[in-house]
């Protein structure tokens, strides 16, 4: 497989990653090499093989729908880049 500049730009956008224009050829080369490695999977016949989502095939555990956590908003917001009046601040989204 060979990924080109457009592919890398699209992937970076989907991943919400700003990447340097100058690094794109390196990403294209490295990701192409990684997917060449990954494509060795195609040698395996996986017809009728059930995908393995959990090593022990365990199921999601359920719990009672009761409040167990205490309010720690102040503590959690103390490490936030920008807050005001108890909310996280981001650039304006709606005009």
């Amino acid at each position: 497989m060979s990924l080109n500049k457009t592919d890398i730009e699209k992937i970076a956008h989907l991943a919400r990653l700003a990447i340097n224009e100058a690094d794109i050829p390196d990403y294209a080369r490295d990701l192409s090499n990684i997917f060449n490695l990954v494509e060795q999977m195609s040698a395996a016949d996986t017809t009728d093989i059930t995908p393995m989502a959990h090593p022990l095939d365990a199921h999601q555990r359920l719990r009672q729908d009761v409040i167990t956590e205490t309010d720690q908003r102040k503590l959690f917001q103390s490490i936030a880049p920008k807050t005001e009046a108890g909310v996280y601040l981001v650039p304006q989204v709606i005009e």
Partner: peptide
């Protein structure tokens, strides 16, 4: 980390 995020993003796209 960026390489792996991009690899995973592509694989799941």
């Amino acid at each position: 980390v960026k390489r792996r995020i991009m690899t995973g993003t592509y694989a799941l796209s």
